[in-house]
Design a protein around this nucleic acid. Structure first.
Lengths: 217, 217, 217, 217
DNA sequence: TCGTAAGCGAGACGGTACGTCGAGTCTTGCT
DNA sequence: AGCAAGACTCGACGTACCGTCTCGCTTACGA
């Protein structure tokens, strides 16, 4: 007995292949799709990842469980897709690295304070070592999410603000790292006040005293 | 199938405490306690946090479920306690900040590569926003875990290597941040090779080209 | 909201009424109708009533589920109609009651051994107390099914073989009863060998020893 | 991972084997067992076999579903066991076959009119052809249930009332058959009035006019 | 001859029940 | 008292069907 399941969560566009399937049957409801993702995010905020149940999502979305399982094989990819809907960093091109970073990091603070990102990301990260193929879903979302930062660094190189052989990935990790650490371990307390100190520290290093005068945690 | 380990001969004798508690009845088996924590850690490595079951822990530890619930109210505090048993950073006092950080961060890499830390920490972090009292268990363990780093920074201030008004917490976050980000998002791939570049970047900042020449991620 | 449904399973001929309905649109497929009934019977044989699913019937008949529900409101009436398609007793008029019964009962054995009657009838009977209107569908089929037997008994009265005030229904039940009991409780084992003993017993009664020498069950 | 399940629904008595199992763990609740069987019977009366759900039984019995599945592998054996709890024919030894049968058949009427027997038996019978091992559960219950009738016939042979070579099983089927047929096809309408006519017909046969003067169906 | 109304296979829809598994609690008999 | 074992209620899991509802497509009729 075949279990028909479309490839991935995306609908196959008619031009995508010359195969025989002409999208027979009733098409999947775009409305249900959105309702499910919305319910997932709102429940994620309320109860957290480990207490998130497919049954609860279905109920809140006003949807049958089968409608969820028809689209996502399990809770994990569903959460990953919902996570992909959350806003990424804001793009910023102000002409200088410091001010770009200021804009970007403030948007980061805003997003973390208003979305379940702080709850979703750690939980998903915790699943990674035991769910190798989760990486395939997760990596592109993560990567795309930091592109504004990478682009800002790239422009800084072109402008000569930072050395041209800078490792952009490492640099990006260093900039976001402190904020990430704080978000993960001190929930609900992220303040934009630390942004300037972070930027100073990142640009000039410990030995130049970049962290001086910042607010303590 | 593990042999059910019973309380052996090495029970604490009645002379072991002069306290007021009369300890009526059979005392709790220290052996069972260890077996539970060990089983928790080993299962954590194998299946991850979200697939961790108390039933599985009891089975592997050769212990009844009630013996677990007699000690910990639920799965979470048990995992936190097991997490506290994992090694922290290595203490290092070599006389210079750069070399201290080198030693400390290499021990960090070692620990992450050989223990379930990489799986436990994100999952626990994901629970924090929805489990306020988990914070009380979790915070001291996290704090104590970074003491070697804080102490190294403190010595660097005393030595005049870094400005005396440096925000130590922020500085610590900045140093550990990049590694944490990498651990969370790229499981099993942590290499000690990035340590020098990380240290250079942290000490001298982006503008001084600290990240130049490091290996890409 | 009324569900447009044609009267019964038969198509109303255009001359059948002078009402306003002009029977516009595509007429129902007689082919699909037969395929559904056939699929129902064959699945009934294979999996039995309680494991019979409309989904399975549709699949085997190569038909959409809606095509089934357009004709029958639920599984039950569908099965009843399929049941009505099964052969009834064979008509027999040999000039004597004993030989009529012999012919009739042998056809009964044959039908039970080659159709799902033995599986369908008990299941439907089990639904009767909780499905009062099922009676309306079921009764005429059952009644019509035993007409040959009733007619044979009627002729026997006319011939003077049995008393004229014989309760024909009760007599029919008595004749078919033993066979029914056996069919229901010992599946697949119905043998025509018991027919003579049954007839003897029915005609002459226990006190005359009618059952002597028959094959044991 | 072993799925421990005791052999059958019965608890193994300690004397039943010399094996090592000393009935470790909490014993199964006799109370729950009764509650489940009672709930099964009462629901059977209300909704019938095909609408009977394990979930509903669990709810009415105030019991978890697992407690049911720990004892019975599926709905069928559970219903069979509940069915076994229903009263059988009444024993009757009045010194004459006719009066014995009268007593027995009247008890049969009473049981059918006051228990779900009329609903259970047909449904179970319908499952028989597709559930061969159900036979093993069902047969002894059915057999034991008609013992009073068989014994009455046996005594009649010893008394010389009926020929000694009478096939008792066939005779029993003949006596019960008409009633069974009526019960199956005319729910809730079983009246004791037909008992005398049935007995007369069974004892004396059609040709002697046993059925004369009985009430029509 | 063509439009239109209904039927068609397909399959998604919101639900309910399935049979399994685990959480956290409660009884056994034994230590 | 604590212990291993295992049954308890409860609730979520992921699957299968229910009966209904679109889809895009025939197919026959009546204008």
């Amino acid at each position: 007995m075949p279990t028909p399941r479309r490839a991935g969560a995306e609908r196959a566009g008619p031009e995508a292949n010359g195969g025989p399937q002409t999208a027979a049957g009733r098409p999947r409801s775009e409305e249900a799709h959105r309702a499910i993702l919305d319910a997932t995010l709102s429940l994620l905020v309320e109860v957290g990842y480990s207490a998130l149940t497919v049954e609860g999502i279905a109920q809140r979305a006003g949807v049958g469980k089968a409608t969820i399982y028809r689209r996502w094989p399990s809770k994990l990819p569903l959460v990953v897709e919902a996570f992909g809907d959350l806003p990424a960093f804001e793009e910023a091109d102000t002409g200088g690295l410091a001010s770009d970073l200021d804009r970007i990091l403030r948007s980061y603070v805003r997003v973390y304070n208003t979305t379940p990102l702080g709850a979703v990301v750690p939980s998903l990260a915790g699943e990674l070592p035991h769910n190798p193929q989760l990486m395939d879903l997760f990596a592109p979302v993560v990567k795309q999410r930091r592109q504004p930062l990478i682009r800002a660094l790239h422009r800084a190189i072109e402008r000569g603000e930072i050395p041209p052989d800078t490792d952009l990935d490492l640099a990006a990790d260093m900039i976001v790292g402190p904020m990430t650490v704080r978000v993960f371990f001190t929930p609900g307390k992220l303040s934009p006040k630390i942004v300037p100190a972070m930027i100073a520290l990142a640009l000039d290093g410990l030995r130049r005293g970049g962290a001086a005068g910042s607010a303590g945690s």
